Amino acid sequence: MIVVDGHCDVLWRLWEDPERSFSDGTLQAGAERLAAGNVRAQVFALFVPPQVPRGQRLKAALAMVDRWHGEVVENAGFRPLLWRDDVPRVTGGDRPWALLALEGAEALEGELVHLRVLYHLGLRMVGLTWNEANEAADGCGEARGGGLTRFGRSLVEEINRLSLLLDVAHLSERGFWEAAEHYDGPLVASHANCRAVHDHPRNLTDDQLRAIAESGGVVGLTFVPAFLTGGEATRDDVRRHLEHAESVAGEDHVAFGSDFDGIDRVVAGLEHAACYAEWADYLLRYYPASSVEKWLAGNWLRVLAARLPARPMTNL
């Protein structure tokens, strides 16, 4: 079975250590491991760490975009997933696909023009925050729990205009609901789990799960032990979150967003992207193939086909 993974931090790792390479075998979601796991489409996040000072954040994001184009697309042969009519091609052919996402609006430094520049460079998914507050909204780690700022509302409007996906992972609860109110497409949580199973601020409440489903969106369940159990975690723990998400949101709104290369502690049996092959076999022990196919790829593909922008005539 093919896989579409909603979140990895490969680009941050490459930016953090310029000596590393996408193809050197050291990354959890490097080229060889993605191929071994049959990952046909991978979402690559642009994560600018909070210690990067204002005035340097866009520069850091652009350096990550440069590594994406140079190593993932040009050297490793991934196709950029840019347009709605690209989506049906993900399931065939001999080359995998790569989608570029922004994990937090810090890199925009309060300027919508920076979003448009990143769009022209291939950006197709936007998360408003990481854990902290920024110019757009409060993250889930901000104690005051505020919602969207004036800039944040303008940012969502521009996301709508460009037909980008809005990623609600990391948002405060108030920010989640305000973003949902202003966004006109299917909501996605690229990498998050269920608060009813494990009470963690990065996990989603049942009301949030239902809202994502009602929008036609998808929740990318993640392999972060801290969000699964708070301690050591196994594949059975991921399955507990899967079963809860499916019972609340429905099987058409559940998928996976591993957070590979954003984590140091790993789930036993899901240590890197090559493990997706065994993960598929594991899921087939418990669920019908039609459901497993949706969770591994089909639900992400449906949302991408519904939301990615139409190819401009000038790009034919």
Score class of each variant (00 low, 15 high):
1 M>F: 06
4 V>Q: 01
4 V>W: 00
6 G>Y: 05
8 C>R: 00
13 R>M: 08
21 S>W: 10
21 S>I: 03
23 S>N: 15
25 G>F: 12
26 T>M: 07
26 T>C: 06
29 A>H: 00
30 G>I: 03
30 G>N: 09
32 E>R: 14
37 G>Y: 05
38 N>Y: 09
40 R>Q: 04
46 L>D: 02
50 P>W: 14
55 G>L: 05
60 A>D: 01
62 L>R: 10
62 L>T: 01
63 A>I: 01
68 W>Q: 09
68 W>Y: 05
69 H>K: 14
74 E>W: 08
75 N>W: 02
79 R>H: 06
81 L>Y: 03
88 P>Y: 11
92 G>Y: 12
92 G>V: 14
93 G>S: 11
94 D>I: 09
104 G>C: 08
108 L>N: 10
114 H>F: 13
139 G>K: 01
142 E>P: 08
142 E>Y: 09
144 R>L: 15
146 G>L: 04
149 T>Y: 07
150 R>Q: 11
152 G>N: 00
155 L>D: 04
156 V>F: 12
159 I>L: 12
161 R>N: 14
162 L>N: 06
164 L>Y: 10
165 L>Q: 11
172 S>N: 07
177 W>Y: 13
182 H>L: 05
186 P>D: 02
187 L>Y: 02
192 A>E: 05
193 N>F: 02
194 C>N: 04
198 H>R: 15
203 N>W: 02
206 D>W: 12
207 D>K: 03
212 I>F: 09
213 A>L: 10
214 E>R: 15
220 G>I: 09
223 F>T: 03
223 F>I: 07
227 F>V: 08
231 G>W: 10
234 T>Y: 03
237 D>I: 05
238 V>E: 05
249 A>E: 03
257 G>S: 04
257 G>P: 07
260 F>W: 15
260 F>P: 11
266 V>Y: 09
267 V>E: 08
271 E>D: 13
271 E>G: 15
272 H>S: 06
273 A>M: 10
275 C>E: 13
279 W>M: 05
289 A>T: 12
290 S>Y: 11
292 V>P: 14
297 A>H: 07
298 G>R: 07
303 V>K: 04
308 L>R: 13
